[in-house]
Design a binder for these strands. Structure first.
Lengths: 340, 340
DNA sequence: AAATAACTTGAAAGCGCTTCCAAGCTCGGC
DNA sequence: GCCGAGCTTGGAAGCGCTTTCAAGTTATTT
């Protein structure tokens, strides 16, 4: 195997100095065209590739951004949210020639190790998915100088840059839709109340109910954690209170709820209408197909990267905060007459 | 913001040379206990963290392994396979203090860019998921000197190190189970025939059928691509040929097939028995719950990393090749009397 | 034609760390 | 009390690249 080429080799072969070779390599000005071409020639012929680590050390940028995914709940496997988000992020990184470094936090140990590894020069920036991960980590991140963007709204950090979707409005619209269809006893199975997504979606539910002048009935609110199984059990607890409609904090929980409903020999939407949240592929394939709230997850990921790169270039002030709108997708599970 | 500490600062403060400080930092021998302690003290007090890039440049190892996921089919989102695999890999990497760099190949462009970026010193090793990605890429990888492990059996590279599951045996057992239950017309919806998983699972189907002395009926074999929708359409094409059982190349396709069956007013397993492949969470929650083949995906990911690290340490010869066994999980969709 | 501006180029100083090498020590054995 | 073995230690040479600075060239201005 032939010895790896260095920029010095290229410089020697093209009969210029290393500095000039570097200029050509990086497409910098102040090189005569003739020389520039000569150097390119040598680079092409030899198949030379610059050594990324050396380059990083000298330039103080690595071209790597971190993607931190919090303590892996079952949700990571079940929920297509993460793959979608990751895909949006990866797509945009590829486009801008950045590389992604993935940190799946699984153990307490991982979490401890994380900050030190992240804070010290390997990464140009970090995208953190909010979740079960301690605010403490986000604290540290924001204190530090490394550019960061939060995916989802961080609970106690109004000054952080983040991208989020308007969960309150989304949930509000979902519940309002049910109310307008004539449902009288609309219940909800919330997502994980340790996340802003869970909290906000419950808030949207409350606002819609109150907007119609209906008193909030605590028995009609049960807490889940975004997983199918929590939707299933949530629904079982709800059934004795005779809801005629349920808004669930995720499609996955909606699937669980439907399972429980069918098992109780009731049917969707005749006996109980359902509206989910996410509009990921399974929603369309459910039986009945799910009425749900669509989030632009892909754009979400794209934007997160764009913001991060902006921060890397231009500094973290002012905070960039973007909230995406959601869209109600009406299918059959809500019993709407216009169902597809 | 305080200037970043360097090893020189530590050395100065501890009144030793940089060489000695480095020895202490890396827990190397040949340092007097007293000195070692003094240096540690300074490191602790100052909160010094070594600069990973500088360290990589000097030591010629980065502690980063690449994870390459091929051209992203719809499957990446739908199929919990990838999250599970990723999780197994991440877990093991965390444990060994390696960092994962994720490469999702999405465009032709990405694929072109990939090899150059990978081949040149940023990564200590690479795990490649086989799939729609050109063998050409795996070719290049194997030619080069960078340690690599393939997840799944690469089609034309018997000399590669890989981890795989015994797809042929798995499929064989699935189909044999159906035959033993008395099914007479067992069909199959295969996975993507561009993958060894797809090919091998069909092969297993064929072997089981032939083993029972039944002639292969081409009409009972349709090709899908692991997605729900391909299972749905596949089943629709199968229905006119009156199968009484179907083995699908993935659980996701099984869900699609069930949807098509129900839509034709037939029922599972009474009219048509189904066996899937994967045993991921949705299988358990399907209605009816899916009889399927369980693959140890998590261990699969773990092993891939272990092999890779082994290669990094000890060289790529001889090739490490590991094939995991699968397990038939009997639930209700096959109509077995012992269904849960 | 002289003076000045603008562009090219290479030498050299890092970036922060690892590691080889040689020098200086300590200590036991005879 | 002397010698060599075996530790400790620091100096210095990289790892491969970027970037500053000053010197050398060429083009422009008056």
């Amino acid at each position: 195997m032939k010895k790896n080429l260095t920029l010095d080799d290229i410089a020697a072969q093209a009969d210029v100095s290393r500095a000039t070779a570097s200029r050509v390599l990086n497409d910098r000005p102040h090189v005569r065209d003739e020389v520039r071409e000569r150097v390119w020639q040598v680079i092409q012929e030899t198949g030379y590739k610059p050594h990324p680590v050396a380059r990083s050390l000298a330039s103080q940028r690595t071209g790597i951004v971190g993607l931190v995914i919090p303590r892996t709940t079952e949700g990571f496997f079940t929920d297509p949210y993460f793959p979608h988000l990751t895909q949006g992020i990866a797509y945009t990184c590829n486009e801008h020639d950045y590389i992604i470094s993935l940190f799946l936090i699984q153990t307490q140990e991982d979490e401890r190790k994380l900050y030190p590894r992240i804070s010290q020069g390997l990464l140009d920036g970090v995208i953190v998915q909010v979740g079960a991960i301690g605010d403490q980590f986000i604290d540290a991140l924001l204190q530090g100088s490394i550019p960061s963007v939060v995916a989802g709204r961080p609970q106690h950090h109004p000054e952080a840059s983040y991208v989020d979707v308007d969960n309150i409005a989304g949930a509000y619209n979902a519940v309002m839709h049910l109310l307008q269809l004539g449902c009288k006893r609309v219940a909800t199975i919330t997502g994980d109340m340790g996340t802003t997504a869970g909290l906000d979606r419950e808030e949207g539910y409350r606002r819609a109910i109150e907007k119609r002048g209906i008193p909030i009935e605590p028995d009609l609110i049960v807490h889940g954690d975004f997983t199918e199984i929590s939707g299933y059990y949530g629904m079982q607890r709800l059934l004795p209170h005779k809801p005629d409609a349920v808004f669930t904090g995720s499609d996955t929980m909606a699937m669980g709820a439907i399972r429980a409903i069918k098992q109780a020999d009731l049917s969707v939407p005749e006996d109980i209408a359902i509206v989910g949240y996410d509009d990921l592929p399974p929603a369309r394939m459910a039986s009945p197909p799910l009425t749900t709230i669509r989030q632009p997850i892909h754009r979400f990921g794209v934007k997160a990267v764009e913001i991060l790169l902006d921060i890397i270039e231009n500094g973290k002030e002012p905070p960039r905060q973007i909230v995406f709108d959601t869209k109600l997708i009406v299918r059959e599970s809500c019993g709407s007459s216009v169902g597809t």
